[in-house]
Write a protein that binds this DNA or RNA. Structure first.
Length: 548
RNA sequence: GACCCCGUAGCUCAACUGGAUAGAGCACCGGCCUUCUAAGCCGGAUGUUGCAGGUUCAAGUCCUGCCGGGGUCGCCA
């Protein structure tokens, strides 16, 4: 990372001395696709050529002539048609980077970029009205990885689960649980309806209700609320357990019910004071259309009850007052229509324009035998997170969720995920890690030593060795990019490439060579690779096995 | 109908802030284990990036229109 900044500075210095820039532009450095184009390339000359009214190639030549690159970092510089500047890294910087990996271990790739800024990522937040379904599982994998990434680059990021334990859906849940309880107790009326949640899972919960409790609730004025609260509590416990098995931990759970009435009333007051509210047909409306929404939204229904939106606004007011500098909400695809009104509300609450970021996780379809498996929370049959983890294991499930862009729809190939074989992409990466671990153990058994202080890393000069070192050197940049764009799939892509480069290296070279100097250099390279593979997997919450 | 997402190899997907000859995996064919893990490696075939325009030195990526798939559009959450 540091060497990339050095290179940027060198180029900027050249641009300044040539008088090409008034303000300093970001210098784009990228990894060329072709080996013949070096390790790093920049198209800066081409983007400047137009403003300067000069030929891109000439601009590039001038920049190269004016720039002074440290010999310790850049081995050679070339200008290529139609105006690229291509740099090749020096063996020295690659070796230094290897040493950095080995000394920083699990912290390699981390930085202070975020300066400890308070960040909150909210995800999953599924209603406690049933077991977690696959979209939630995907959101869990994506959200937790984003939190890990943000903390890794120096933000103070926390994860939170918003529990919708309030409102009409909970009443409906209470109705269904009451049905199950009456069914269980043989008290069912002949024409009684099961309500909105016919799933089998409420049966087990109904059986846990002590008879005297249920009778007590029945006698109260709002029995459905009591049944609903009981169901919510039980289901939330199950959700927590499922998340735990999946390896997902939240820093906090925030209950919607705790927002009533204070936070809700305060939020409403702020909106009213800023004249963004009005009355119509006995309901209170939010003038969200003035702030980019399609139309105005109801805050308080004509029956006096707040809407889900008002509750969510109140929830975001707590986020604002809890001091988060930036909020990321990760929502399911069914919520994207909610986005403009919530963003509008955040502005009215006094948040900066870009304070609230909403990222949408795409749908998950489970494919088995080439056909989609039907699923819906309200249908009797569905595939839950628990089913999935039992079926394929959490490493596989997470990897499948993380290997694609989060916002695009995902077809989860259950048959492929189930296979404990080379067809399954997860094992490709984990195998590389296990393989290195095993080689290191073998070398240790043979009495080999690989001390970074005395090794001659200059011996790592083959194509495969170099390619591996270069890729390792780009890890910090990949981490930063993945964190800032909230695209954790980049980690999976990176890990896949790194594993591939290692496997090639392994094939081409005997690591535990008879030549001791060569052996120790290669062992160091192998160990550094193992560290970075592990870092990548850990960020994704996936285990890095030492044997397979 | 309005709005949002998606459309890349037979299938599932990558392509970093617009960059050079669009890449992996799976599936298919052929090679490689008396040496550190063959869940691996090497080689082979596969493309009008949905279609049509536009912007520019450069477009899978940005803009417009169209086609196809999915989603949202409630005083539900």
């Amino acid at each position: 990372m540091k060497f990339l900044e050095e290179i940027q500075k060198s180029i900027q210095g050249a641009l300044r001395s040539l008088g090409f820039i008034e303000e300093e532009p970001g210098i784009i450095l990228e990894k060329p696709r072709l080996k013949s184009h070096g390790d790093i390339s920049t198209p800066i000359a081409m983007s400047l050529a137009k403003k300067l009214k000069k030929k891109p190639l000439d601009v590039a030549e001038k920049i190269v002539a004016a720039a002074t690159f440290s010999k310790d970092i850049v081995a050679s510089v070339e200008v290529a048609e139609p105006g690229f500047i291509n740099l090749t890294l020096s063996p020295k910087i690659l070796a230094e980077n290897l040493l950095e990996i080995l000394s920083r271990k699990g912290r390699y790739g981390s930085s202070e970029l975020g300066r400890g800024e308070k960040f909150q990522v909210e995800y999953v937040s599924a209603n406690p009205t049933g077991p977690l379904v696959l979209v939630s599982a995907r959101a869990a994998a994506v959200g937790s990885t984003i939190v890990n990434l943000l903390n890794f680059i120096g933000y103070d990021a926390e994860s939170e689960y918003y529990v919708n334990d309030h409102g009409s859906q909970i009443q409906a849940l209470g109705e269904s649980l009451r049905y199950r309880w009456r069914e269980h107790s043989g008290m069912l009326a002949p024409d009684e309806e099961i309500g909105a949640y016919p799933g089998e899972y409420l049966k087990a919960i109904a059986e846990k209700i002590p008879a005297e409790k249920a009778l007590e609730w029945e006698a109260e004025e709002d029995p459905l609320e009591k049944f609903g609260a009981f169901a919510t509590g039980e289901l939330l416990e199950q959700i927590k357990k499922d998340l735990d098995v999946f390896g997902i931990k939240f820093d906090s759970f925030y209950f919607e019910s705790s927002l009533y009435p204070e936070w809700v009333e305060r939020s409403e007051g702020i909106i009213e004071n800023k004249a963004f509210a009005y009355e119509k047909d006995g309901a209170t409306y939010f003038k969200s259309s003035q702030l980019g929404d399609e139309k105005d939204r109801v805050l308080r229904k004509s029956d006096g009850n707040p809407t889900y939106l008002l509750g969510d606004i109140a929830y975001h007011l707590t986020k604002l007052e809890r001091g988060y500098k930036k909020i990321v909400d990760i929502w399911g695809p069914d919520h994207h229509g909610h986005m403009p009104r919530m963003k509008a509300a955040a502005v009215v609450l006094g948040a900066p324009q870009d304070w609230l970021e909403v990222d949408i996780v795409g749908w998950v379809r489970l494919i088995e035998g080439g056909v989609p498996v039907g699923m819906s929370k309200r249908a009797a049959k569905f595939i839950s997170l628990r089913d999935l983890v039992e079926e394929v294991g959490s490493d596989v499930a997470k990897y499948f969720f993380l290997m694609r862009r989060a916002n695009s729809p995902l077809d989860f190939d259950l048959d492929l995920a189930r296979k404990q074989s080379d067809e399954n992409p997860v094992y490709y990466v984990q195998y590389a890690h296990a393989r290195i671990s095993s080689v290191l153990k073998f070398a240790e058994g043979k009495g080999c030593e690989w001390d970074p202080k005395i090794a001659n890393l200059g011996l790592l000069d083959s194509g495969a060795e170099r390619a591996l070192m270069v890729h390792l050197a780009f890890f910090p940049q990949v981490v930063e990019g993945a964190a800032i764009t909230r695209e954790p799939h980049r980690l999976a892509v990176y890990a896949q490439e790194l594993a591939g480069l290692f496997h090639q290296f392994y094939q081409d070279h005997k690591i535990v060579s008879d030549d001791e100097a060569v052996a120790s250099a290669r062992l160091l390279l192998a160990e550094a690779t193992m560290r970075v593979l592990r870092n990548t997997l850990e960020l994704m919450g996936i285990s890095a096995p030492s044997s397979m």
